[in-house]
Amino acid sequence: MSPLAAAAVVVALVAATTLLGVLWRSRQGRVRTTVHPALVRPSDVGVDGGFGERATLLQFSTEFCAYCPATRRVLGGLAGERDGVEHVDIDLTNAPAVAKRFNVLQTPTTLVLDGAGAIRARIGGAPRPRELAERLDQILGETHVAA
């Protein structure tokens, strides 16, 4: 390969990687609404209890996740400000079965469960706080009306 062609390959690689990064960043932390018939129980993720009466912010973390501590603070704050909402953080470092069951491929991944335990939303990456708060309040509103 000539030096010019080699330089072109290098420039193309930088451009492609930049595009990849922009795409990745645009998807990170988005709140996706999900419809799941199955209900999640505390035992499914290896805890005894601690789920909220009205909603649960179920966070999956590992030891090698740089954004999990910040996410923990955001979710803890959102849960703390609302009655009947709990934040539960599950460490998947040594729990590959739980990761597989909920198809968690990146951390943090957050599931928003309603009072019954149905998965109502899913966030891959550090959640965008305002977007998540809106979705959470929407779910809480529905529950309130139903009850």
Binding site: G21, V22, W24, R25, T62, F64, C65, A66, Y67, C68, L92, T93, P96, A99, V104, L105, Q106, T107, P108, G125
Partner: peptide, 11 residues
Amino acid sequence: FAYCLGCQIYL
């Protein structure tokens, strides 16, 4: 992009 390999690759 502050991409965290531990977050994306470990699992």
